[in-house]
Amino acid sequence: MIELIDTYWLFFLVGQYPNGPLGGLSLTLILASLGLVLALPLGLLLGIARVSPFAALRWPVTAVIFVVRGTPLLMVVFWAYFSLPVLTGHKTDQFTTMLVALVVFDAVYLAEIVRAGIKSLPAGQMECARSLGLSWLGAMRLVVLPQALRHMLPSLVNQFVSTIKETSLGYIIGLTEVSFIAAQINTQVFTMPMQVYLILGLTYFTLCFGLSRFAYWLDRRFNRGASIRVAA
C-alpha cells in the first residue's frame, strides 16, 4: 500500500498536469469551489423569489425547485451532457458540463437553505423595516438578509461538503476528477483494487469530515444552538 501511494501520489493529486490537463484531487476541489461560488448568487435569487410576496414569481420558482429536487443529480448531468452542445452550438467539455449541472443542482438546494434562513428570523423584522418606509426589496437587502446569511454559514459549509461528494459523478462523463483518476490507477496497477478504492475513500473522508467538523464549530460559535436545519 505504501508502494502504491509512493508511485501514484502525484497522479492522484494533479492528474497528468503539467504534461496534460489538470485532474485528480485538485480538480475535484476546484470544481466543487467554483460550483458552490457560482451557485450562491443563483441560489440567493431563487431563495428570495421563493419567499417573495409576488405569486407570479413564487410559483414558477417553487415548481423548478421541486422538479430539480425530485430528480437525481445524475439525470441533471445527463441532461447537461446532451443538451448543452445543442443549445450552444458547439462541443462542451466535461468540466463545463459538470460545472453547469452542479450549479443548477446546488442553486436549488441553496435556495432552500436561504429560504429556511429567512424564515428563521422573526416576522417582526420585516414588518418593522416595512413600517419604517423601506420597500420589500430594500428591507430584504438591508435588514433580513444580513441577519439570515449569518445563520446560514454552517449550512453553507455543509453544502460544500455535499458538493465535493457530488463532483464524484464527473466519473460517469469521463471528467478526470479524483474518482476517475483512482479508477485509472486501478487499471494500471490491476492487482490492488481494494487498496486503491480504500485510499480514495480515505481521501474523501479526510476532506469531508474535516469540513463538517468545521461547520459544527461554526454552528456552535455563531448560533449557540439556534441554527436552522434543512432536510437534504
Partner: peptide, 23 residues
Amino acid sequence: VESIRNVPLLAHMLFWYFGAPEL
C-alpha cells in the same frame, strides 16, 4: 456513521464492486 457519510456514494459503489469481492 461518520466514516460512511463523508464518502460519496459513488466511491462506496466502486469499492464494493471492484475492491471488496477479492476479500
